[in-house]
Nucleic acid binder design. Structure first.
Lengths: 299, 299
DNA sequence: TCCTTGATATAACCGCCGGTTATGGATGTG
DNA sequence: CACATCCATAACCGGCGGTTATATCAAGGA
């Protein structure tokens, strides 16, 4: 019923060369393959496209009718590929676990369209299990993720540096404190990211700071809603960045600073081997916005 | 590199339905097959065309760019198929062993273009080994052939009925006669059509009229040139229709009537199961031209 | 005359594509 | 909480799109 555009290219090559052998050479395929494909095309269309003779091939009536259509279709496909390439050059696919928030994305986006009017940002929510938010599989051009991230394949600019809080149900014994130390939490059950998150999971369990003390993982969490429910129902505690506190401020959960934990770092990351021009300007704009912000409101 | 138009149709279906499942239903394929094909298309183009969500699919930037191109290509292919169908409706492929000659083809062709201005005759020379001149393999719509022909699958109109002559080298003992009888030829070596010609081979050996007398086949012949050479060099004799005599009148061969052989019949034949409108009018015109001719020059 | 050359067709083979069914996981809903 | 819906994945299978090797045939040259 339908045709492979490749077969149309084959057909046009034979129509141009009027020779299967030479056409096969220009197409870099073997002559039998070309003959077979053309025969299949003829069988499919129920018409003969060429009159084979010992001297070569001649176009039949149907063949000459087909030529202009085939040319238009091949040209259209070339145009389509070019258009897609252009579109992909001016499109940035951004991965993120939760929205980066912090009012950074709207501002950068506004600046970006001012700089490149035909630029388009495509946002993609990605599962917490995917630590690189699509960078690893090349599904995204850049991603808002929390450190740590392996340095060699990835590069990044800092978006925010925020203290780590611990979230717990309002009824928790520690809930009355002003703040806590990590030592207060060592025996508490914790919520953890999926195992596939690797070092990131360890980071939000403060595994390094715990030293030899083991951590008790109460459950795995895959999105904010799940996390809120698990914390509120007392299943376990959970570390989170101060900037994400508003998402949890819903009454059943209270959050306390953990005094002796280093702040967490939210970055815009990308793959060092994949840095198209638009990404470059986007990164520049992000750095710029963040920079101006840290000046106006220094911590 | 190139695309199958089918995949573009698949893509358009998903773009229209914004759902893989529903699109698969409208396409009468399974949903996994559709998903796989779209993924393959995305991999090939190195862009993602849809954003999959639990609620269904949304077009990505690249996807919306592709839509108009895909629509144009699909439409173009539909148009091409329609054009080919129209062309094949107004094209008649004629098979023939040697040109039918007798001034019939030019006249019928002239009348045909007068009746159907966009009609086109496509002539196809075909090997003598193919007794039906392409009718059997459906390679031709009609063919100029000599009887006999099996009646059930084929039908025909008579183009010419001509006495059979025998051709021999000028040096042959019989060459001085005014005419010969079959009895004079019984011991002579004859040239024969290839075995695959079947009953037609027998006919031009006058096998039936020979009765029990065996025929001595000197060689097989595949075209006029070969035949002329074989006759002229004395390899064997050969029967031929009077109308084809001019082709052999070149000095080294003489032709004599065979008194007691029935005349041969040249017909325009076609397959009874394949008789498109244009063929019908062509047959009518042929019959008409022949009819008028037999009236003006009765034998 | 024979051999070579160059054209297309045929055959046997093989990996991958394009379909199938079965199944699982995520999401919204009564 | 069960259920329906939607998309993804897996395993499987026939056929397509390529390969090399070979046949056939027409044309041309020593």
């Amino acid at each position: 019923m339908d045709v492979h555009v490749r077969d149309l290219r084959y057909f046009l090559a034979v129509a141009r060369e009027l020779s299967f052998t030479r056409a096969a050479e220009t197409l870099y395929i073997s002559q039998p393959a070309l003959s077979k494909q053309i025969r299949a095309l003829e069988r499919q269309l129920r018409v003969s496209l060429f009159a084979r003779e010992s001297t070569g091939a001649r176009l039949s009536r149907a063949g000459s009718e087909l030529v202009p259509f085939a040319e238009r279709m091949v040209a259209e496909w070339e145009a389509a590929k070019a258009a897609l390439a252009r579109a992909s050059d001016s499109t940035l696919v951004l991965g993120m676990h939760t929205s980066p928030g912090r009012r950074v994305l709207p501002e950068v986006r506004a600046r970006l369209v001012a700089a490149c009017p035909d630029a388009v940002l495509e946002l993609r929510q990605v599962a917490w299990a995917d630590r690189t938010a699509g960078l690893a599989e090349r599904a995204t051009d850049a991603a808002f993720v929390w450190l740590p991230l392996p340095q060699p394949p990835y590069r990044w600019v800092t978006i925010a540096r925020e203290p780590r809080l611990v979230a717990m149900a309002t009824g928790h014994p520690l809930a009355g404190r002003e703040s806590v130390a990590l030592a207060d939490l060592l025996d508490e059950p914790f919520l953890a990211l999926p195992a596939s998150a690797g070092p990131l999971r360890d980071y939000w369990l403060a595994l390094e700071e715990r030293g030899t003390n083991p951590v008790q993982v109460a459950a795995e969490i895959n999105d904010t809603e799940e996390t809120y429910e698990a914390v509120a129902s007392g299943i376990g505690l959970c570390l989170l960045a101060a900037g994400n506190a508003p998402i949890f401020a819903r009454g059943d959960v209270i959050m306390l600073p953990v005094r002796d934990l280093s702040p967490a770092e939210l970055v815009l990351a990308w793959h060092e081997r994949h840095c198209p021009p638009l990404l470059e300007t986007f990164v520049g704009l992000c750095a710029d916005v963040v920079d101006r912000r840290t000046k106006t409101e220094p911590t």
